[in-house]
């Protein structure tokens, strides 16, 4: 029995629902030929910014129970260098590419979208909204109005489907999700990391150079899942679910909760083969449950 795994976001079609979270996918081109990369439903490289950023002071990461805290600081060479040096290799893999962008203001977001339009060949653009909102002392993703304003501005320019990546560090993530949907987002990515910290008790210093960072990994999965489940029930656009996915059962939880795609993030660092294992496990589950289309699985939670 043929199995239909492909999913759509806006006008783009992805061969299967398994992708990677931005910032967790290797930059080594020698790995692009591998089965683990070719099997993905989409490639999502690390977030790029308009200009090069050198990133935060080390230490940038620390281990926590079933997870990690990071404060990398979006170290990247800037969007022009990305388009010239990284994007051609990514496109050659033959897997749809979603580029994640971040900026400090709407103009820079729009300028980056125009540059990506000119570069051509993308499947979608993802807005990393966990950046400071310069007008207020919070993140764009923590403010429904600011989120809507960025989405609206980029949507007016960008020729690709547009994904808004949401922060879980809010009181009601469904309100932000609906604001993004109302402003024209074609999908939501959720969730980004949880604000967190860890202290070295010997030195009484933060274990992170940036003082605080973002928690990710299996530790956050149940909270991320709850947020995805609540949001998927309230929006009509697809949700890309992520947060501590390590194996097929974890991914199945998100799909059943209503996610259209699932992303392996931090667990790529522990098991680079995890996305492939997730895909194989989803197929096995569908076969066992006599499902022929992934849509039978998405949002199939029993209430």
């Amino acid at each position: 029995m043929p199995m239909k795994l492909s999913v759509n976001i806006g006008t783009s079609v992805f061969p299967n629902p398994v992708t990677v979270a931005s910032g967790t996918f290797g930059h080594s081109e020698e790995l692009y030929r591998s089965k683990e990369v070719k099997c993905l439903g989409a490639l999502v490289p690390k977030t790029v910014t308009l200009n090069a950023q050198q990133g935060n002071l080390p230490p940038r990461i620390c281990e926590t129970p079933a997870g990690m805290i990071n404060a990398i600081g979006i170290e990247n060479a800037g969007i022009d260098a990305f388009i010239d040096n990284k994007l051609p290799g990514l496109k050659r893999v033959g897997v749809p590419v979603i580029v994640s962008i971040s900026a400090h203001n709407e103009d820079d977001f729009a300028l980056m979208a125009e540059k990506l339009n000119a570069a051509g060949g993308l499947a979608a653009v993802e807005l990393n909204l966990s950046c400071p909102n310069l007008k207020k002392k919070i993140l764009v993703a923590q403010d429904a109005e600011a989120t809507a304003a960025v989405v609206r501005r980029v949507k007016a320019v960008v020729k690709y489907p547009l994904i808004a990546k949401l922060s879980p560090n809010v009181t009601d993530i469904t309100a932000i999700a609906q604001a993004a949907e109302g402003a024209g987002a074609d999908a939501l990515s959720m969730v980004n990391t949880f604000a967190a910290m860890a202290i070295d008790v010997r030195t009484r210093r933060s274990k992170i150079g940036n003082f605080t960072g973002g928690l990710s990994g299996p530790a956050i999965r149940p909270i991320a899942l709850r947020m995805v489940c609540e949001t998927a029930a309230r929006v009509r656009i697809p949700v890309i679910g992520m947060g501590g996915i390590a194996c097929a059962d974890d991914a199945l939880e998100f799909l059943i909760a209503g996610a259209t795609m699932v992303a392996v993030g931090t667990f790529n660092f522990v098991n680079p083969r995890a996305p492939l294992e997730v895909l194989e496990g989803i197929k096995a589950y569908m076969k066992k449950n006599k499902m022929s289309d992934i849509r039978e699985l998405i949002g199939s939670i029993q209430r």
Binding site: T24, G26, H27, S28, P58, I61, F269
Partner: peptide, 25 residues
């Protein structure tokens, strides 16, 4: 301290005369 070991996460970067460089990659 390293997470990925593959140059993906940029968690093990150290300051060098050429800017931050990953120890792993």
């Amino acid at each position: 301290v390293m997470a990925c070991g593959l140059g993906a996460c940029l968690g093990c970067s150290i300051p060098t005369v050429n800017g931050y460089r990953t120890v792993c990659h």
